[in-house]
C-alpha cells in the first residue's frame, strides 16, 4: 500500500468523517462490505481443495460476518437515517458488495493463489485504513474499541494469507505469486474505472431516456389510458400451444 495511500487517508479521513451523518453511512457501508466478504470466504471454504486452508477460510468468514454485525450495530446506535445505511442494516437483501459474478464466486474466478493474493492485499488495506483511524483518534471511544477488536482479526487475515503466498514462493512458484499480486494490484483501479464508466454511462443514458420520455413519449399520452380495474376475461390464445409457448410476448 505504501506511503501515498496512507498520507491520503490521513488527510481525507477526518474530513470525510466530519460530514453530517457520516458515521452511520460509513459504518453501514463497512457492514455491507464485511458481509460480502463473509459470503466470498464461505464460498472459498466450500470450494478449496486445500484441506489445510479450509479452516482458515472458515474462521475468516466468521470474522467478517461478526464484523458486519458489529458495524451494523454501531451504525444503528448512530441512528442510521441515510437510506443506504438504513437498507444495509435491514435484513432484506441489499448485499451488493460481493465477488459473485454470474453465479461464480470470487474464489472460482480467481483460483487459489490469486484469491490469496487478493485477500492479502484487501485485508492489508483494511489494516492500513483502520490503523489510520486509530492513529488519528478522531472517532469516539466506543467505535475505537470496536476497531481495535476488528484490527486484531484483520492482522490475522493478512498474516495467514501472506504466509500462504510465501509458502507458494518457497515451493518455486514465486513468479506466479508476483504475477497474481500484480493482477490484484491493477485490478482495483481497473474496476474502479469500470465502475466510474458504468456510472457515467448510466447518467448519460438516463438523460437520453428522460429526453425520449418527454419529447417522444408525450404525444402518445393522448391515446393511452390506464387499464380498467376489476376482472376482465382472458381470451384464448389462437396459436397452437407450442407456438404460444415459443413466443416471448
Amino acid at each position: 500500500m505504501g506511503r501515498p495511500r496512507r498520507t491520503w487517508l490521513k488527510l481525507v479521513s477526518p474530513l470525510a468523517w466530519s460530514r453530517k451523518d457520516s458515521e452511520q453511512r460509513f459504518l453501514a457501508s463497512f457492514s455491507e462490505t464485511e458481509r460480502g466478504s463473509s459470503v466470498d470466504m464461505l464460498a472459498a471454504c466450500e470450494l478449496t481443495e486445500r484441506r489445510d486452508l479450509r479452516r482458515k477460510y472458515f474462521i475468516h468468514a466468521l470474522d467478517e460476518a461478526r464484523h458486519s454485525r458489529m458495524f451494523a450495530r454501531r451504525a444503528k446506535e448512530f441512528g442510521a437515517r441515510q437510506s443506504r445505511a438504513r437498507a444495509a442494516l435491514d435484513d432484506a437483501n441489499t448485499l451488493q458488495t460481493h465477488g459473485i459474478v454470474m453465479g461464480r464466486p470470487l474464489f472460482e474466478r480467481y483460483g487459489e493463489l490469486e484469491f490469496l493474493a487478493f485477500v492479502c492485499r484487501s485485508e492489508a488495506m483494511a489494516v492500513e485504513q483502520f490503523g489510520v483511524y486509530r492513529e488519528l483518534d478522531f472517532l469516539d471511544d466506543k467505535t475505537n474499541v470496536m476497531l481495535d477488536n476488528i484490527l486484531r482479526d484483520e492482522h490475522f487475515h493478512v498474516g495467514y494469507s501472506r504466509t500462504e503466498l510465501e509458502r507458494y514462493t518457497r515451493q518455486g512458484r514465486g513468479a506466479e505469486v508476483t504475477w497474481a499480486q500484480r493482477k490484484v494490484f491493477w485490478r482495483r483501479p481497473w474496476e474502479a474505472w469500470m465502475r466510474f464508466s458504468l456510472r457515467v454511462g448510466h447518467v448519460v443514458t438516463g438523460i437520453w431516456m428522460t429526453l425520449l420520455y418527454v419529447l417522444v413519449v408525450a404525444p402518445f399520452k393522448l391515446g393511452a389510458r390506464r387499464e380498467a380495474a376489476g376482472w376482465r376475461a382472458v381470451k384464448p390464445d389462437p396459436r397452437s400451444r407450442m407456438a404460444a409457448a415459443r413466443g416471448q410476448g
Binding site: 448510466h202 443514458t205 438516463g206 431516456m209 428522460t210 425520449l212 420520455y213 418527454v214 413519449v217 408525450a218 402518445f220 399520452k221 393511452a224 389510458r225 390506464r226
Partner: peptide, 19 residues
C-alpha cells in the same frame, strides 16, 4: 404502456426501467 399512461409523473421510473 404504463409509462405512457402515467405521463408525465413516471419521468423518473421510465429511464430506470429502460436501462
Amino acid at each position: 404502456v404504463n409509462s405512457v399512461a402515467e405521463f408525465p409523473r413516471a419521468w423518473r421510473s421510465f429511464p430506470r426501467a429502460m436501462q
